[in-house]
Amino acid sequence: MKILDEIANYFKEIGEIALFAKRFFKEAFKRPFERKEFIRQCFVIGYNSLFLVVVTGFIMGLVLTLQVRPTMQEFGAESFMPAMVGISIVREIGPVITALICAGKIGSSIGAELGSMKVTEQIDAMEVSGTNPFKYLVVTRIWATVFMLPMLVIAADAVGLFGSFLVENVKGAVSFKLFFNQVFENLSYGDLFPATIKSFFFGFVIGLVGCYKGYNSDKGTEGVGRAANSAVVLASLLLFIVDFIAVFIADIFYEI
């Protein structure tokens, strides 16, 4: 019985998120657009996560190259390193790692912020002062994550490739020009565009889940913590599901 309840709750939550998403799309394109708040959220979400994402991306490129290099060397295929690292970072590792980091940083902060606003009646206060809080808080945040995540992914990709180049340069004496020439030589639009489109959806998932959890948080400080925590967990899970679907669709449109 308890398990049945849990299953029922699970589907209920999926339904609620779907309704929340529907409400977002209904309000997302309606005027007035909260431009100032959107820019502020872009700053908070995009710019303030930049350092974290860039550092992670750099280490990611560094470590990936260091780990894969010996194996490639065994096959005498070190010259494939830039191509391999380039494709794996651009296609998969860059977007997914960045999205997971952002789910942790942005998802939890949105969840906690909206949760505490809900608990302290700030959302009600907004409503009575004639501002649609859904538009002001949720729509702007989701738009901000949708637009900022691809930017962060690009930054992480660029820095990750630079980290990979440093390893190649030190260990294999590969010049900057050769490294990036090889990277671009082996990238195609079939690698870049699905990854970029995927990033938009990753941003949407992080924003949507963070806002949903915060906006529907329970009363009390405990509820705020729970909202932040479950936002991260659910967002991370959904990211992988979206990634799977994205790869699936990309395979249909772009033959590998």
């Binding site: 912020e113 009646e121 009600d124 409503e127 009575v128 002062s129 004639g130």
Partner: peptide, 23 residues
């Protein structure tokens, strides 16, 4: 919604915990 928003400007509401916008 529009009419409600108008009525709301005529009615002041002081919330229990002040509900100031933290940010």
């Amino acid at each position: 919604q529009k009419e409600l928003d108008y009525i709301r400007t005529e009615v002041g509401f002081l919330f229990q915990g002040s509900a100031l916008y933290d940010s």
